[in-house]
Amino acid sequence: MSNSLSALPPRKIASPWLWPLVWGALLLLSVVAMSAAEPLFRWIEPDARQVVYDRVDFYVLLGRHLLVVGIAAVVTIVVGVAAGVAVTRTRGADFLPLVGQLASLGQTFPPVAVLALSVPVLGFGTLPIIVALMLYGLLPIVRNTLAGLQEVDNTIKSAAHAMGMTPTQTLRQVELPLAAPVILAGIRTSVTINIATAALGATVGASNLGDPIISGIVNGNMAYVVQGALTIALLALTVDSLFEVLQHSLRSRFTAP
């Protein structure tokens, strides 16, 4: 346990907020000022009548996309972490093997298949998307919660118990904070996948940033496709870099052995 951290040379990183700001700014720019780039799009698609997607405003599409992913994220985080905690307690231990296996098996399901399968059950619209996102996004979070909680050293848990912490206090003050980095990584995976899956929403009747892409493909309008693709890529990069910042701040607070 020697002080090895001080041996590292200081890295010349700019503020970790650099990338999120860059991507975020580009995202806002694209959403608000899409029509300003009309000449560029005209060059890409000289024959179409209309080159800037304007059936719905881009910022509205962004809002809907964020809404869908956001709702799914909140629900999956709450349910996923709760489920992970529940099966790692002694009372829920019976369900641990099954839940663990299911969570890792579920990774093999292609998200598009899950989305497609939710339509027969739930019809068209925004609801099947949210449900499919929730179901699919649950798995990385549960898996990582399980992994994170199980990694917490038993000696530490015994020490907490022996010091006089109640099981709830141990969970809140010791286990969850120590498992937090891994759980956060799972949330990041879940949200990233969901942003991509939600884009397919246009095929099931929801409306979000996938619309221009799909509409462009269907109508053969490359400009639409580029606009949609650009916006959604920027969204994904912004969110991902935000998570990177979050993970970085967690990591630098302590490095668990």
Binding site: I44, T192, I195, A196, A199, L200, G210, I213, I214, G216, I217, M222, V225, V226, G228, A229, L230, I232, A233, A236, L237, D240
Partner: peptide, 20 residues
Amino acid sequence: NFLQTIPSLALFGLLLAPLA
């Protein structure tokens, strides 16, 4: 990593124009 973050639909879409 950068490539992996971009949603698949977007990447498919972005490749269409240059390839065409």
